[in-house]
């Protein structure tokens, strides 16, 4: 007992250091494994409201650029509208159409905190649970894919951006539907890599990459980027593909969160199938 007390007395600095370091590592491990723990969300919310205040001031400097990108997007959407098409038929009739049912809805949000140069980048937005955002929803900008929601508090959400080691987004080539997975290697925020594309597929520089519908996160056809480099090593089964991203992460201001109304149904069905084995 006396020895123990002596030991504690002699090494109390080390013991303090050891326990605090262990505490930090456990917190970090929990964050990396479960992505959310209740008290982390509160501290996250304090920081988010700090960044929101900063952002309220700095966003004025980029208003012109934001307006331009929104105008471009509006113009593109207007050309898709029904009244932009010339009626080529002879008869005009209205039908009560039950063929279509809305599957995806979009929630707009502003970026309050963002980084592009860390190994694992996260984005914070100013919409949260109150606005209907839930973890594992997809996030896009007006140009293309941005990331996936990981944690949600009342008024804010954090997004694991595509520039993150742990973000794996299912994607395919637009021209032939050959699929792969997006992985960021951590060197340049303008480019990412498309991996696991089989070598028998023809791939050229300039081919467009879009999302596919393997996951419940993104609707099919959201643009990702274009292939900027292609190589195939001898004896390798997969192409090495570098993709230039459409989304400019360093100037990201406005994003849309995608709500998939059929997600629960699909997840439930897939879970049942897995349970059978």
């Amino acid at each position: 007992m006396r020895n123990l007390l002596f030991f504690l007395y002699k090494y109390y600095t080390f013991l303090l250091f050891f326990s605090l370091e262990l505490f930090s590592l456990i917190i970090l491990y929990q964050y990396n494994t479960y992505q959310r723990a209740s008290f982390l969300n509160t501290t996250g919310a304090i920081a988010a409201s700090f960044y929101e205040k900063v952002n309220n001031t700095t966003s004025y400097f980029s208003l012109r650029r934001i307006n331009d990108s929104l105008l471009t997007e509006n113009a593109r959407l207007r050309t898709l509208q029904l009244n932009a098409y010339y009626q080529n038929g002879f008869t005009l009739s209205t039908l009560n159409d039950t063929n279509y049912k809305q599957q995806y809805s979009y929630i707009s949000a502003n970026v309050v905190n963002n980084s592009v140069i860390r190994r694992n980048n996260y984005i914070t937005i100013d919409k949260g649970r109150l606005h209907g955002i839930e973890p594992n929803m997809g996030v896009i900008s007006s140009n293309g894919v941005v990331g996936i929601v990981t944690a949600v508090s009342e008024h804010f959400s954090t997004i694991r951006s595509a520039l993150n080691k742990d973000t794996k987004i299912s994607a395919m080539l637009k021209k032939n539907g050959a699929f792969g997975s997006l992985e960021w290697k951590g060197d340049n925020p303008k480019y990412t890599n498309l991996v696991d594309v089989n070598k028998h597929v023809q791939v050229k520089v300039g081919d467009e990459v879009i999302t596919n519908n393997f996951s419940t996160i993104f609707p099919v056809g959201i643009p990702v980027g274009v292939i900027s480099e292609q190589s195939l090593d001898a004896g390798d089964n997969f192409h090495t593909l570098k993709v230039e991203l459409y989304t400019d992460f360093s100037t990201l201001r406005n994003v849309y969160v995608i709500r998939n109304k059929f997600r629960d149904e699909q997840v439930e069905l897939e879970r049942q199938v897995k349970g059978d084995h």
């Binding site: 250091f17 370091e21 930090s24 996250g44 920081a47």
Partner: peptide
Amino acid sequence: DSFYIPFGLHMAATTFMGY
């Protein structure tokens, strides 16, 4: 750490440096 994600990185690094 409250201003960065994930939580715990700076705590671990700074405690180590202080020691």
